[in-house]
Computed example of a mutant assay.
Amino acid sequence: MSRRDAGRAGAGRVMWRVYNTIQFAFTLAWTAGWITLALLLRPFSGPQARLPLRMAARCWAPGLLWGAGARLRVEGLERVDWSKPCLFVANHQSVIDICALFRAIPVPLRFLLKEEMKRVPFVGWYARATGMLFIVRDNARAGAMFRREAAALLARGHRLCLFPEGTRSRNGEVAPFKAGSLQAAIDAGVAVVPVALHGAGRVLPVDGFFRVRPGTIRVRFGTPLPVRDEGRPVARQALAERAQAQVVAMLRELQ
């Protein structure tokens, strides 16, 4: 590489750092502003917190996707009966996955979050105020409590989304789904809907500090999986394997 090319490459990296710093500042301000408004309106939105949840889908998430230069493509909406509660299970590539799912799913949605998120200003406050679920990872007792809470939430007619890999993928590969995370759907008798997320890891990679790059994020909904077969509950390990296999197959189609 010539000295001139090296200089251009260095200048390009500096420009990206400046651009990402501006994006990060926008993300913080946008999130704080919309969550503050959502919390102020929370007392007037009833026990289901429908208004704050829809604000996330129609205002907060689209703004952050726009700020990241991300274009969203949603496929397979017709496969899901949106009048019924269900458990969405998605692969996990990036923190921007939550924005994409909030925007893609046309009904109020709650997420399962790690316990540490409770202590994050604004985000933790919003999550608790809107009835999100939390879990202490790698804790058997906490897992059992989560399954009871999640089953009750689904039985009341709500929709819940979780990432059954347990963590974000660093290489794009989909790790095996943890079967215990799907037990709540079996207990509540609601379908499991596999969701494939493609491109989020390139828009906002796991490694590095807020290295955003414009790109397309595709969200594809799979065929809902019943949790009963001839009146008997489906084994949760088999259910997890079917959901994971469907997500992997959809990701291959999206590549």
Score class of each variant (00 low, 15 high):
residue 1 M to T: 04
residue 8 R to D: 11
residue 9 A to N: 07
residue 10 G to S: 07
residue 13 R to N: 13
residue 13 R to T: 15
residue 13 R to P: 15
residue 14 V to I: 11
residue 14 V to E: 11
residue 18 V to E: 11
residue 23 Q to T: 04
residue 24 F to S: 07
residue 31 T to Q: 02
residue 31 T to W: 00
residue 33 G to M: 01
residue 34 W to Q: 12
residue 43 P to K: 01
residue 44 F to G: 02
residue 47 P to L: 10
residue 57 A to S: 15
residue 64 L to T: 02
residue 65 L to D: 10
residue 66 W to Y: 05
residue 68 A to E: 00
residue 69 G to R: 00
residue 73 R to N: 02
residue 76 G to H: 00
residue 79 R to I: 07
residue 84 K to R: 12
residue 85 P to S: 07
residue 89 V to M: 07
residue 91 N to L: 03
residue 91 N to I: 03
residue 92 H to K: 10
residue 94 S to R: 03
residue 96 I to M: 14
residue 99 C to Q: 13
residue 100 A to P: 14
residue 100 A to K: 05
residue 103 R to T: 14
residue 103 R to F: 06
residue 106 P to Y: 01
residue 106 P to D: 04
residue 108 P to E: 06
residue 108 P to Q: 09
residue 110 R to Q: 03
residue 113 L to S: 10
residue 114 K to W: 06
residue 115 E to S: 11
residue 118 K to I: 10
residue 121 P to I: 06
residue 123 V to E: 11
residue 125 W to N: 05
residue 129 A to N: 05
residue 130 T to A: 09
residue 130 T to F: 06
residue 132 M to R: 07
residue 132 M to H: 15
residue 138 D to V: 13
residue 138 D to L: 14
residue 139 N to S: 13
residue 145 M to S: 14
residue 149 E to H: 07
residue 149 E to I: 04
residue 150 A to V: 00
residue 152 A to W: 05
residue 154 L to V: 04
residue 156 R to M: 09
residue 160 L to I: 08
residue 162 L to C: 12
residue 165 E to P: 09
residue 170 R to N: 12
residue 170 R to A: 13
residue 170 R to T: 08
residue 173 E to V: 09
residue 174 V to T: 12
residue 175 A to T: 06
residue 176 P to C: 10
residue 179 A to C: 09
residue 180 G to C: 06
residue 181 S to W: 07
residue 182 L to W: 03
residue 183 Q to F: 13
residue 184 A to H: 10
residue 191 A to M: 15
residue 194 P to C: 03
residue 198 H to E: 13
residue 198 H to C: 11
residue 199 G to F: 05
residue 204 L to Q: 08
residue 205 P to L: 00
residue 209 F to P: 15
residue 213 R to Q: 13
residue 216 T to N: 06
residue 220 R to A: 09
residue 220 R to L: 02
residue 222 G to E: 02
residue 224 P to H: 00
residue 231 G to D: 10
residue 233 P to C: 00
residue 236 R to W: 05
residue 237 Q to K: 08
residue 238 A to Q: 07
residue 244 Q to H: 11
residue 248 V to F: 02
residue 250 M to W: 01
residue 250 M to I: 04
residue 252 R to M: 12
residue 254 L to P: 02
residue 255 Q to C: 12
